[in-house]
Simulated scan of single mutants.
Amino acid sequence: MEARNVAKGDWDVRGRDFETALAGPVTPSICDADRAVRFEFRNGFPNWALYRTVIAGDDLHLAEVRRWCVAFAVAYGMDGGVRRDAYSEELACVAAWDALHILLHGRQLQPHTTTADALGVHHKTYQRFRNAIYLRVRASLDEYWVQMVVAYRQVLKAERKF
């Protein structure tokens, strides 16, 4: 019988990393980390719902995130995010849905030119508006995620689980 060498690495010893744990089921420690992050980082975005929907893959908050993205796109569009003559509620709604789809799946629903033609706006106007919505939501989620990882470490350390 021949002895086999099995490769072992640090991943066998340390267990799950913080990012993997945060992308898993909700635990009291994760809730505590979120509470700590919300204490310092309040920007008006539904960061918990975004994190659980986009990173953890939960469907529980998807409808809330979708409604919020549309409301954000309407407010942003009416506040000068797109030219007044090009703005419509349909444009805001479709751009928000498309931005959310890119956030969730890493690709657009259909080519932006097709969507722009259906909405009756120039394709660059649509693309610029959609991308602005996407980039703002993505930036908020990225900042929240970084702060969650740090807060989660601190919570586990305080609980002496680290």
Rank of each mutant, 00 (worst) to 15 (best):
E2R: 06
A3H: 02
A3D: 02
R4S: 03
N5D: 10
N5S: 12
A7D: 00
A7P: 00
D10K: 06
D12F: 05
D12H: 11
D12G: 06
V13H: 09
G15N: 13
R16E: 15
R16F: 09
D17K: 02
D17G: 14
F18N: 07
F18P: 00
E19V: 10
T20G: 15
A21P: 02
P25W: 10
P25Q: 09
P25G: 07
V26E: 10
I30H: 01
I30L: 08
C31V: 04
D32M: 05
D34V: 01
A36T: 00
V37D: 06
F39L: 14
E40L: 09
F41E: 03
F41G: 00
P46T: 08
N47P: 11
A49L: 10
L50N: 03
Y51N: 05
R52Q: 11
T53M: 10
D59N: 14
L60D: 07
L60I: 14
H61A: 08
L62S: 09
A63G: 14
V65T: 05
R66S: 11
W68V: 01
W68G: 01
W68F: 15
W68E: 04
C69P: 04
V70F: 05
A73V: 10
V74G: 04
A75P: 06
Y76H: 11
Y76V: 04
Y76C: 06
G77P: 06
M78N: 09
G80I: 03
G81R: 11
V82F: 05
V82M: 05
R83F: 05
R84W: 02
A86F: 14
A86K: 11
S88P: 09
E89I: 12
E90G: 15
E90A: 15
A92Y: 06
C93W: 11
A95D: 14
W97A: 10
D98R: 03
D98A: 05
A99M: 04
H101K: 14
L103P: 08
L103A: 13
L104V: 05
L104M: 10
G106S: 08
R107D: 11
Q110E: 15
P111M: 12
H112K: 07
T113P: 02
T113I: 15
A116E: 08
D117Y: 02
D117T: 12
A118W: 09
L119S: 03
H123Q: 12
T125V: 12
Y126E: 07
R128G: 03
R128K: 12
F129N: 01
R130I: 01
N131T: 15
N131M: 09
A132W: 00
I133M: 03
I133A: 02
L135R: 07
R136S: 13
R138N: 11
A139Y: 01
A139S: 02
S140D: 07
D142V: 14
E143C: 03
Y144D: 07
W145D: 11
W145H: 13
W145A: 12
V146H: 06
Q147G: 00
V150C: 10
Y152I: 01
Y152F: 13
R153L: 11
V155N: 11
V155Q: 04
L156D: 03
K157W: 08
A158H: 05
R160H: 10
R160N: 15
K161C: 11
K161D: 07
K161H: 07
F162K: 08
